[in-house]
Design a protein around this nucleic acid. Structure first.
Length: 564
RNA sequence: CGGGAUGUAGCUCAGCCUGGUAGAGCACCGCGUUUGGGACGCGGGGGUCGUCGGUUCGAAUCCGGCCAUCCCGACCA
């Protein structure tokens, strides 16, 4: 259906009252998507065309590295999820069938694909290979937001690689990284890959593919040659003026000053001249430890968990009082606990720390002399910190894809093993690779829209060309537009013809809102000279002279190739 | 899960404070005019005022419960 007069394209002049994100507003206004519940969206015909364009790009590039497309069900027995321990995840939707059997709606497909592979693969000769599908994912998100950016149901391309060992996995991982670079390059998005947290997935390495945009939920630290999710980023701290150490720690009265701010103000020092003591309890036998960062820094909980290699919790006031002193006045000096000192703390300085006594701090404290410590890197990086001598910037981005080296996280509990040349049974080494097409669509809207509407990269546009036919029905303009429409379609262009009875203003406004990269206008201004006007959507630039109707197909194809 | 807000026509909203016939603009239908930047005239259709309960002679309006949706935060295999 490519005649606007017959297309279900419900454009709106006003954005939804409660929409905040640009992509949310524009995708609804342009008639691409409609909401049916919180985090639940339908894709209308024009929007679905964009989604399908993304899907096709992904399919071609994953096929090119030997991925095999298949399809697995969303509704699954709960058993495998019990075995992998993921049944306990809150986001997993659980239900029972009519016989009372426990079922789940899959949030990804590791359990299913690994179960099949466990049944099928017997020998190292069966490896390696990789499988993928495009399938709906269900997640009981605590807070869906920003239109299609974070939803409870969405289509994901999820791929899984199966190798005999870590070296094989690395090769598969690299192949996917290469394919992903081609995919995101082809979409026309601005993007980059970043180091990311391996999270509860386990495994040894992970990268995320990020599209920078305002509505993004992630923060990325960037410097020349460096890009990392702030969750895991490391950088050189900005210097701060710290007094020289005193010959020995000296007590100062700090009545009721329980915060870094209050102490800094009282002693007229920058916050960075203080040390912040963050007491935690580690889940393993290390127990209670004191994490110490510079006063102007914050502890990064993910980096801390990774540095510890174990889950942890913040210590309670009771723990703190029993082991150190009154909360608000604790510090590392004289404490009978392990001290983990963040790399942002210069050990030559003389810092102010809590004295482990009420209303009292110590100053002139030198790490190493006045307390023992182990070095860790557990702080949140900040804009202006540096990497390789370059200051970093931090910008929001939307995660559009990720690649994970899973290892044996799923193959072991699900019994996916093979026999090697020596007849030894070994677990299959897996990787998993996701892409969210809907997020690519939304990111494109975020990155390239202007005050008039969307401006699609040509690779994602729902149609290649929009023809705006002016003049009333029965006029020569409409007839000429119909002829142009036939000619362009004949050579394989995707063409949308605005043949509605609406006025010119409404047609132009809708064309700009929908954002098709090339607009051809057929009206009496240019028809007399046998031409159609042409305008690029990006920047709304007119093409000098337009295109001649005679031989238009070739001219338009050439023009289309020059578009972003 | 914590904080904030909102539910009135397809959309954006007014009306609520101070209880008494449910409104506007856009959209839609009919007729006519109009066709290069969201046209105009005339006529018309459309709403359990989220829901349940309470107060009252009378509730969109006051009170309470619930539900839904959005925003901020937490969370985000």
């Amino acid at each position: 259906m490519t005649r606007l007069s017959q297309l279900l394209l419900p454009t709106e002049r006003e954005p939804p009252a409660d929409a905040e994100a640009v992509s949310h507003k524009l995708m609804v206004r342009a008639g691409l998507v409609r909401q049916i519940g919180s985090g639940l969206w339908s894709w209308l015909p024009a929007g679905w065309r964009v989604h399908q364009k993304v899907v096709q790009i992904i399919r071609e590039e994953i096929d090119a590295i030997g991925g095999q497309e298949m399809l697995m069900p969303v509704l699954q027995p709960a058993e495998a999820w019990h075995r992998t321990g993921r049944y306990e995840i809150d986001e997993l939707l659980k239900l029972k069938d009519r016989k009372g059997a426990e079922m789940v709606l899959a949030m990804t497909h590791e359990e299913c694909v690994t179960t099949h592979v466990a049944q099928v693969v017997r020998s190292y000769r069966d490896l390696p290979f990789s499988l993928y599908h495009f399938q709906v994912k269900e997640r009981d998100e605590p807070r869906p937001r920003a239109g299609v950016l974070r939803t409870r149901e969405f289509i994901m391309k999820d791929a899984y690689s199966f190798d005999r060992d870590q070296a094989g996995l690395r090769a598969s991982y690299d192949a996917y990284a290469t394919a992903y670079a081609r995919i995101f390059e082809r979409t026309g998005l601005e993007w980059y890959s970043v180091e990311s947290d391996v999270g509860m997935m386990g495994g040894s390495a992970a990268h995320e593919y990020m599209a920078p945009c305002r509505a993004g939920e992630n923060e990325v630290a960037l410097a020349p040659g460096y890009a990392a999710n702030v969750e895991v980023a490391s950088a050189q701290a900005q210097p701060v003026d710290v007094p020289a150490p005193l010959p020995a720690p000296e007590a100062v009265q700090t009545p009721a000053a329980t915060t870094i701010d209050a102490v800094a103000r009282l002693l007229e020092l920058p916050a960075g001249a203080l040390l912040k003591a963050f007491p935690i309890v580690i889940a393993d036998d290390r127990g209670f430890v004191l994490v110490v960062v510079r006063g102007d820094h914050r502890v990064n909980e993910i980096k801390l968990a990774n540095a510890l290699g174990s889950p942890w919790r913040a210590a309670t006031d009771g723990d703190v009082s029993a082991r150190l002193g009154p909360p608000g006045f604790i510090g590392p000096v004289g404490a009978d606990v392990t001290v983990l000192l963040d790399e942002g703390v210069d050990s030559e300085g003389g810092y102010v720390v809590g004295a482990n006594q009420a209303d009292r701090h110590l100053r002139g404290v030198k790490p190493g002399r006045d307390f023992d410590f182990e070095r860790v890197d557990v702080r949140v990086v900040e804009a202006g910190d540096s990497v390789g001598g370059h200051p970093i910037t931090i910008e929001p981005a939307i995660e559009v894809g990720n690649i994970f080296q899973l290892g044996t996280r799923y193959s072991e509990p699900l019994g996916a093993t093979y026999l090697d040349e020596d007849g030894a049974q070994r677990p299959i080494v897996m990787g998993s690779y996701g892409i969210g097409p809907a997020r690519i669509v939304a990111a494109a809207v975020e990155q390239f829209s202007d005050e008039k509407g969307i401006s699609w990269p040509r690779a994602l546009a729902p149609w290649d060309v929009e023809i705006v036919a002016l003049g009333r029905s029965g006029s020569g303009e409409l007839a000429a537009a119909e002829g142009l429409y036939r000619d362009l379609r004949a050579i394989g262009l995707d063409v949308l013809l605005d043949d509605r009875a609406a006025g010119p203003g409404a047609k132009f406004a809708d064309a700009e809102l929908l954002g098709i990269p090339l607009r051809l206008t057929v009206g009496r201004r240019s028809l007399d000279s046998g031409r159609a006007e042409a305008q690029r959507r990006r920047g709304l630039e007119d093409v000098e002279g337009g295109v001649a109707l005679d031989g238009a197909a070739e001219a338009v194809t050439e023009l289309w190739r020059t578009l972003p």
